[in-house]
Design a protein around this nucleic acid. Structure first.
Lengths: 230, 230
DNA sequence: GGAATAGTGTCTATTAGACAGTATCCA
DNA sequence: TGGATACTGTCTAATAGACACTATTCC
């Protein structure tokens, strides 16, 4: 069944249809970017942008639906995805009653390079256009979640290449927290945890090269002793 | 339209119906309790218990639906309610495809007294029966959320009467965190914040009466300097 | 040698956590 | 006076946060 048919039926029945919307972040050139897709749904949403997403197809969980829709828009596998919140204001979609299960997703620079976003654009979060539906609100919620979570988990690794330097790691924190951090304190804290390991290599640069590190825990999100605010 | 009709239509169309489920906690006799309602839905769920909740009626948000369903089951107003997570595993409801937006709710001893739970029972969380649907999983998620949130917010006030003693407050923390806390350190920390104010009264007891306090902030959930673990 | 970025150590103030005895009320 | 619970203070170890200079690489 096509989405338009769903919409029709749902609208007639006056019940809600469930969909997923995904806020995909990545850090490019020290700026947090969101992935947006064109939206053109007369009569309410004309030539706008919105979040990638879509209906939850038959016999799939919302998680699976989010993964599938993402994979269709950005040709990348193994993306970090976590459920954010569900948005259900009656008028959030002017076309018909619809409920959106929103997801937060992060992609690394490596994935960003591989990705071919023919169906969308990457926009810096402080240069967002006016968005369709309640997608601005969803993005705000995602930013808050990311800000909160980066200080007490190792989630930053989902925004970095496998190998990274400490200055790069620090910049990710600064970009998300929107404030400068002291280099010495930052290094001290991170090196005192067992979160990262030195790789023993460097990259070619036109100045003094930095040591490369990697996260020791492959994928589990662990909680170090709470970092109030770095 | 009745819920059974919804179910029929939804089942025929093979699309998902959205509902809300609410995990209501309260602390009685130093034990965390959950509110459960009888569930009897042949052929899969016979004489079981489950969370209060139900479908999201026409033109209401999930928040409103959760409030309404709660008010029907427990005759109390102004209940604390926050969205927890949305559960959407395809087989979570054996009758038909259904998605549940789960809520966490807290009620105070004052509300607990007023409440007339003719339609359900309060069960200690470590004596839960086997529950219908995926409601055990939802409760686990709610407990985790509560445990996490009590250490960095003033959410405990939603589980206490307007006026309370420091020993009472401490017991709420101990019951939720499931470990004893040092009385002196606990008092020190709480009194060093501006979270609570002394009321200057005591209650009649058969031993030395404790000072009464109240939370200074009416309803907003504020974040004191992070408390790692009390 | 200059440009650019990486890397390093100390001090102070605050906080976390361990720990035991006294005070107050009632019967 | 005994039972029950409320209330109080100190010490130590760890952590947070402020702060400025040296090192390395490339050109």
């Amino acid at each position: 069944m096509k989405e338009t048919e769903f919409r029709k039926i749902v609208s007639d029945l006056r019940i809600a249809i469930a969909a997923v919307d995904v806020v995909v972040f990545t850090v490019v050139n020290d700026v947090l970017h969101v992935f947006l897709t064109p939206v053109h749904r007369p009569p309410h949403y004309l030539n706008m942008f919105g979040l990638p997403g879509g209906v939850i197809s038959d016999s799939k969980s919302a998680d699976e639906a989010a993964h599938r829709h993402l994979k269709e828009k950005i040709q990348v596998e193994d993306i970090y995805l976590e459920q954010l919140s569900t948005f259900s204001a009656p008028n959030r979609d002017k076309r018909s009653r619809s409920i959106s299960i929103a997801y937060l997703s992060l992609i690394t620079p490596e994935m960003f390079e591989k990705q071919s976003s023919s169906e969308g654009v990457w926009v810096p979060i402080d240069k967002l256009p006016s968005l369709a539906y309640d997608h601005s609100e969803i993005i705000s919620a995602a930013i808050e979640r990311l800000k909160g979570k980066i200080v007490y988990t190792n989630i930053a690794k989902e925004l970095l290449s496998t190998h990274f330097t400490l200055p790069e790691l620090q910049r990710v924190y600064e970009v998300i927290l929107k404030r400068p951090l002291d280099k010495r304190n930052f290094r001290k804290k991170f090196l005192n945890t067992n979160l990262i390991k030195e790789v023993g290599k460097t990259r070619k640069t036109s100045h003094r090269p930095a040591q490369l590190y990697k996260f020791s825990n492959k994928d589990i999100e662990i909680i170090p002793e709470v970092w109030a605010a770095l």
